[in-house]
């Protein structure tokens, strides 16, 4: 699924990385616990979370995750977005809660079966 499609399914705003929306993701990881995110390595993942602190960007960076969707209408500070832009990430913000966001992506085909 391309990030453009992700954006459409989640009715999300693009906060950073409009130019990278043609990138493809194979699976999603929905969690507010960064240590749990760090425990499960997959390729081409979009991270869905309600946390908006800078460590979300750092966690994504270490995991080679280049797409993040903030759920429940959360938007991080400019400083956090700057860090994400520096790392060439796509950052989305959706009004949907985490459960619904994951469900929308899964039911539209982002099942994680295409990863390595």
């Amino acid at each position: 699924m391309t990030l453009k499609e992700v954006q459409q399914h989640l009715s999300a705003k693009v906060l950073v990385g409009e130019e990278y929306l043609d990138r493809e993701v194979f699976s999603g990881c929905g969690s507010d616990l960064m240590s749990d995110v760090l425990a499960f390595v997959k390729d081409r993942v979009i991270l869905l979370t309600g946390l908006v602190n800078p460590q979300v960007i750092r966690t994504a960076e270490m995991m080679d995750i280049h797409a993040i969707a903030f759920v429940r209408g959360k938007e991080p500070t400019e400083e956090v977005l700057k860090l994400a832009a520096l790392k060439e990430m796509v950052v989305l913000s959706t009004e949907h809660p985490l459960y619904i966001s994951c469900g929308l992506l899964y039911s539209n085909g982002l099942t994680g079966k295409k990863d390595e």
Partner: peptide, 15 residues
């Protein structure tokens, strides 16, 4: 509240 302290840090390092 910041997303850490789930008791996965040291196990993740080992992993």
């Amino acid at each position: 509240e910041l997303g850490f302290g789930a008791g996965m840090g040291l196990p993740n390092m080992k992993r």
